[in-house]
Amino acid sequence: MFKDNSDNCIKAIRDAQEAALRAIGELMYSAVFPLIPTDTTELQNSLDYKIDLSEMSITIGVNTEYAIYVEFGTGVFAENDEGRQGGWAYTDKETGEKIFTMGNKPQPYLRPAYRDNVENIKQIIEENLRKHVGDNFKVSIKKG
Rank of each mutant, 00 (worst) to 15 (best):
46 S>A: 03
22 R>C: 12
104 N>R: 12
87 G>M: 11
22 R>E: 12
89 A>E: 14
66 Y>T: 03
113 A>N: 01
94 E>R: 15
9 C>D: 11
99 I>F: 09
8 N>G: 12
67 A>S: 10
16 A>L: 00
57 S>T: 08
47 L>N: 08
102 M>I: 13
76 V>T: 00
85 Q>A: 10
49 Y>E: 03
5 N>D: 14
89 A>C: 08
82 E>G: 14
46 S>G: 02
97 E>I: 11
55 E>T: 15
84 R>F: 02
106 P>D: 06
55 E>G: 15
48 D>F: 09
120 N>H: 10
20 A>K: 01
125 I>E: 07
3 K>G: 00
93 K>A: 13
112 P>Y: 00
35 L>S: 09
34 P>W: 10
87 G>V: 09
80 N>T: 15
123 Q>S: 13
26 E>I: 07
55 E>K: 14
60 I>N: 09
69 Y>H: 11
99 I>G: 12
86 G>Y: 14
114 Y>G: 02
6 S>T: 11
22 R>H: 11
70 V>S: 04
81 D>W: 03
6 S>W: 03
104 N>K: 12
39 D>A: 05
24 I>D: 05
76 V>M: 01
17 Q>H: 07
4 D>R: 12
102 M>Y: 15
70 V>C: 06
80 N>K: 14
30 S>L: 08
30 S>D: 13
